[in-house]
């Protein structure tokens, strides 16, 4: 049904951030979250959505609290019709439901939303997977293939990843899971707290469950562009007459450091994406030649084989012990 190929892309904040910019959206970025404590969440403010990623497996998902009423027309929820598109799907789900001033959706996503909003979740999913523009951007983040070949050993990395988004929408917390039939309503968001405080126990429960099941997962946040946030704060500090010179200097230098860090991050994303798209084959061949020239190739290969055999033996021993 869905036309065209969607490549598997890496779950990485740099890839996701550049993916958003590639769609033509602006004003937001993606940060990886390592802890759900107050400090970590405070730094992510304003946060527009959480994306939970994990290795997919059949689970006994509950169908309780599924949205079945007219909210289905308001919330942009699309069903996931192809696996590899899920990163884009999760990001698009967050962006299309975000009404924050910081986000500029851009024409590609704006037009897509206008076009697909009237459809049901299944049709929205199909429309997304058939969008040439969105697919082309998504695929531009695929790893460069050295050449076409049958990668038996790569199977372990081709595991299907699944993404779930948590978003605030009109005062309630929703879970958008493209493998479900509808959004899941997690109830009202407390009025005098951040929405992430309401999401925290729910996400934590999920993390707990996956940790126990040794399922690899990670958590990302779609947040307002941090650099602009710090620049705004810097302007406020400079214009604040209530501050003493020392206070102002301290705050200014702290914010300058944060801005500098964001610039460094942006540059490293750029380089990582260049590396991701690069054809490394000629480089590798030259490096192997250099090893041979220096007489380092044979000893290195021998050493690696010995190490590998030792590892294999350890594993066999382990298996024997179990039997």
């Amino acid at each position: 049904m869905a036309s065209g190929e969607w490549c598997l892309i890496e779950s990485d904040p740099g890839v996701f951030t550049d993916l958003i910019h590639g769609f033509g959206a602006d004003g937001v970025q993606v940060e990886e979250i390592f802890s759900l404590d107050d400090d970590s969440l405070e730094q992510m403010k304003p946060c527009h959505g959480l994306i939970f990623l994990f290795k997919w497996q059949q689970t006994d998902s509950s169908t309780a609290n599924m949205v079945k009423d007219s909210r289905l027309d308001e919330i942009f929820f699309a069903r996931q019709v192809i696996t590899n598109a899920c990163a884009t799907q999760a990001i698009v789900s967050v962006l299309l439901n975000c009404t924050h001033d910081d986000l500029k959706l851009g024409s590609t996503l704006g037009e897509f939303k206008d076009f697909a909003q009237a459809f049901d979740p299944q049709m929205r999913g199909l429309t997304l997977s058939n969008s040439d523009k969105i697919r082309d951007v998504h695929n531009s983040f695929a790893r460069q293939q050295l050449f076409e070949f049958d990668s038996r050993d790569e199977k372990k990395e081709e595991d299907a990843f699944h993404f779930i988004a948590y978003i605030p929408f009109k005062g309630r917390l929703y879970e958008l899971d493209g493998l479900q039939e509808a959004p899941i309503d997690h109830g009202p968001i407390s009025k005098d707290a951040e929405w992430t405080d309401t999401a925290r126990p729910i996400v934590q429960q999920r993390m707990q469950k996956y940790s126990e099941g040794e399922i690899h997962f990670s958590l990302m946040a779609v947040v307002s562009e941090l650099r602009r946030k710090y620049e705004r704060e810097l302007e406020q500090v400079l214009a604040d007459p209530a501050l003493t010179d020392d206070e102002r200097n301290a705050k200014t230098s702290h914010l300058s450091m944060l801005i500098h860090e964001e610039e460094r991050k942006r540059e490293s994303y750029r380089i990582e994406n260049l590396r991701r798209r690069h054809n490394w084959l000629p480089f590798i061949v030259e490096l192997v030649k250099a090893y041979a020239t220096h007489g380092a190739l044979i000893p290195a290969v021998d050493k690696a084989i010995v190490a590998k055999e030792a590892e294999k033996k350890r594993e066999t021993d382990k298996k024997r012990k179990r039997i």
């Binding site: 460069q144 990668s151 050993d153 690069h278 590798i284």
Partner: peptide, 12 residues
């Protein structure tokens, strides 16, 4: 990213 490419190279 380089590591990934070398691993693919090794398998091939």
């Amino acid at each position: 990213q380089f590591r990934q490419a070398v691993s693919t190279f090794s398998v091939a």
